[in-house]
């Protein structure tokens, strides 16, 4: 085995400091130190506390990327401090690094955040097996390897909260359940032993709180340190909703279905018709002022001028033969 030489470089850290009991506003403390190539972000948090300021607070426990306690942000990128190597951070962002809690809005003291909203939303999706089990079962409940593959590794989630606090909708809409809760709902919906899918589909389909408010920014997929890929699970929940005929007829579901209608008719998307179909004949009226402005600038294609894809028959045939759901 070849040993890589340990290198050292000087790094300046801007460290978020805040004590909710005594401070009106957070502030940043600048600390410069020599960082070796084998350190991880958690080593830096330790050294800030041990070598610079004993009052610095942060959570840590397992040091093996499995407890999820040490989640922080480095230059805006959510990381598990014990897993992320300083070399990689310097490679991505250079030698001036800013360390923040996962959500400054929820900071209690320095890196320590109040995750109550995260746990409340986690609990709201009924994150446990719902099943009628005999009081004295005579055998185990078998799950084949193929059946457990259907979970798509959603069971790897360690509830670190990184995706939850990276989600821009969580920041804006207090009702939104968020990517971690949705991934967890999928984890149990996809479990062959579970019988709670109807309840959970109902929960995750609520307008405002549910999957339809996801903005599809992929922040959750990008940040997840366990590669759970929450947005993939959100898509799966959408699919389960339609496959089980549980879709509520509203603007959000019609917005998804409208694409299929439009593609079948034109190949391309008819933007105006999609808005009308999604909103309904009355709801669409609220878009008229913007539509007029757009029309004046040549940005609206009238229905009779709607462009069509070449070989439209081919597209129609594929839509007919490849469709797997109906609405």
């Amino acid at each position: 085995m070849s040993m890589q030489a340990i290198t050292t470089q000087q790094v300046t850290f801007n460290v978020f400091r805040f004590n909710s009991e005594t401070d009106y506003l957070p502030y940043y403390k600048q600390i410069t130190m020599e960082v070796t190539s084998e350190e991880v972000v958690l080593d830096i948090l330790d050294r800030i506390k041990w070598e610079h300021d004993g009052s610095f607070s942060y959570r840590r426990s397992c040091r093996h990327g499995i407890c999820g306690a040490c989640a922080v942000k480095v230059n805006g990128k959510g990381v598990l401090a014990c897993k992320e190597r300083m070399n990689d951070m310097i490679g991505l962002f250079g030698t001036e690094l800013t360390i923040d809690p996962v959500s400054s809005k929820h900071a209690i003291k320095d890196m320590v955040v109040d995750k109550k909203d995260f746990w409340d939303k986690h609990e709201a999706v009924e994150p446990y097996l719902i099943s009628e089990i005999e009081e004295h079962p005579e055998m185990e409940c078998y799950v084949t390897p193929m059946e457990s593959e259907a979970l798509l590794e959603s069971d790897l989630c360690i509830q670190c909260g990184l995706c939850h606090y990276a989600c821009p909708v969580i920041e804006i809409n207090d009702a939104f359940l968020g990517p971690a809760a949705f991934a967890k709902a999928f984890r149990f919906n996809a479990d062959v032993r579970d019988e709670g899918i109807d309840e959970r589909i109902g929960i995750v389909n609520q307008p405002g709180a549910g999957i339809w408010d996801c903005v599809k920014c992929f922040e959750c997929a990008e940040v997840c340190p366990k590669e759970v890929n929450p947005i993939e699970k959100i898509t799966k929940l959408h699919n389960q909703t339609f496959e089980r005929n549980d879709a509520i007829d509203n603007v959000a579901t019609r917005h998804a279905v409208g694409f299929a209608h439009s593609i079948k008719k034109h190949g391309l998307l008819d933007e105006g018709e999609l808005v009308r179909y999604s909103e309904g004949n009355i709801g669409v009226l609220k878009h008229v002022p913007v539509a007029i402005k757009m029309w004046k600038k040549g940005k609206i294609v009238m229905p009779w001028n709607m462009p069509k894809s070449d070989k439209l028959d081919e597209i129609k045939r594929l839509v007919k033969s490849s469709s797997t759901v109906k609405f």
């Binding site: 898509t235 959408h238 699919n239 339609f242 917005h255 839509v319 490849s322 609405f327």
Partner: peptide, 10 residues
């Protein structure tokens, strides 16, 4: 990114 919510295979 909406059609796949309705029908991923399509």
């Amino acid at each position: 990114s909406h059609l796949q919510d309705y029908d991923d295979f399509l």
